[in-house]
Write a protein that binds this DNA or RNA. Sequence first.
RNA 1: GCACCCGUAGCUCAGCUGGAUAGAGUACCUGACUACGAAUCAGGGGGUCGCACGUUCGAAUCGUGCCGGGUGCACCA
Length: 581
Amino acid sequence: MNLFTDIRALVIENLTEMQAEGALPEGLDFANVTVEPPRDAAHGDMATNAAMVLAKPAKLKPRDIAEGLAAKLITDARIELADVAGPGFLNLRLAADLWQGVIGAALKEGADFGRSDMGQGRRVNVEFVSANPTGPLHVGHTRGAVFGDALASLLDFAGHQVTREYYVNDGGGQVDVLARSAYERYREANGLEPQIAEGLYPGDYLVPIGEALKAKYGDSLIDQPESVWLQDLRLFSTESMMDMIRADLASLGVVMDLFYSEKSLYGSGKIESALEDLSSKGLIYEGTLPPPKGKADEDWEPRVQTLFKSTEHGDDVDRPVKKSDGGWTYFAPDIAYHFDKVERGFDELIDVFGADHGGYVKRMKAAVSALSDGKVPLDIKLCQLVRLFKDGQPFKMSKRAGNFVTLREVVDLVGPDVTRFVMLTRKNDAPLDFDFSKVLEQSKDNPVFYVQYASARIHSVMRKATDAGIAVDDATLADADLAKLDHEAELAVIKKLSEWPRLIEIAARTNEPHRVAFYLYELAAEFHALWNRGNDLTELRFLQEGDSATSQAKIALIRSVSIVISAGLGILGVTPAEEMR
RNA sequence: GCACCCGUAGCUCAGCUGGAUAGAGUACCUGACUACGAAUCAGGGGGUCGCACGUUCGAAUCGUGCCGGGUGCACCA
């Protein structure tokens, strides 16, 4: 149930009637008519811009339309008051039982309250993390992992059929580097001095791989040329790295539906067929790119290469798909991979990248646009940097991994719940400061705590109620006399709850899960405010001694808050707290 | 030089397919606990929404041009 869409439907219905009655001309587009919460609660419960949006196409004065609409709306039992204000806003006040109905809906629908069918079952592929299998995941990946996973859950909640996917770059030159690095650790395991040359991966995480290689091969690969061991070590070390990455993700609660191997594309004919598709559309040609302007590059020389005409689909320059040695560029398998997603029938694709891949956005969109004939939209979300702090000071550490902080270190220090919530307290395209001290602080400055504390307080009240012999199961609460919830402080909380289904749709439409985190903070604030009003006004306390009917109504309200907090935290992948320790 | 992202209160940031007097937290000041968990709440001061034009009944939001910060710019992924 979504009160805002209900009332919007009522507005549209009345506008249509006005057309039938000749008060409005035919052929108007109602798409821009909105029903929203007003900025200022004094204006009423909801406001519609219908009159202002329609004034011009209808060639009427906004206030005249608004007054006509108001006169019709007021006859509906749900509308208590309809005022024209300002340039033509129509402010509505809703009947109290409509608000109380929100509580009933939350209690009956439980964890599904707010679930939307907006997505209509459309199939969405969310590709995220996709880190090279050459080392452990670091903080940057952590943000991408949390963001992608929460986005996937959000879209699922909004009625999409979601696949979580990880593209494994196990086919390129960096895997050779990995294999050579692992070989040095293998030599080390055999008692020799490892020679970690410039360009190899120095991290300690390869030490156990070296041990494992020794267990498998003994000393048989020592002093053997690369041609003997390179292929085996490529395979062995990427598999080991992927096991580690899977475990890292699992420690955060992220589970992929599919790991898609780049290597599997080679020799399968998929790269060829993807490029054939582009070629059949006249988008592949042999040519020479212009030199980059402004920045002097002495190594640059004109070269004829195989190019994808991405400029026809919005890119700034055409992109090479073949290297001069005849091999594919990294872009070619990426094209094939996205072609594969399109062929698997997804209606929408989302890629989550780190901000350092910003320059890659246009060519990837161009490729998908070309491959799907513009039918499958690709949205690319860039996650900005995470800056680590401790007690306000920039934080550096990790001998284990080389020179970066790993996902595992973060999760071990603050736990998966805190990690996930904090990673979503910023918009994805804004940089995020992550202070190890602050995120564990128990104060309202820390949103994780603040929301969890609200949840804990609610459970505390419910435990007290149970001790007092008051039934507080959801079915009983749903039958409570909700008309008792008529104080403005209580209605304020209900109104916030009523925005939940609307918020889900906005967040899902914009692919912005951080909105859920901010909403939960606001909901918690409304709840804490109501709680404290009870200090002064005893009639606002949730437990009314000797009056279990009133207590149940009030508990129905806060139980609804906890249902929404749980659902919201569930989307973010965070476990709600029943008590604080 | 080009492309993308960002620029909102002293600081860190929200801001809904363009809506009314731009909101939180923090910091600063002032109040509220013999409590359903004060780990909280209420109130106060604090803003040329980077700048300038433009579109619109209406712009933090859309367009163009500047300024400032970040990222990326053939045959690495």
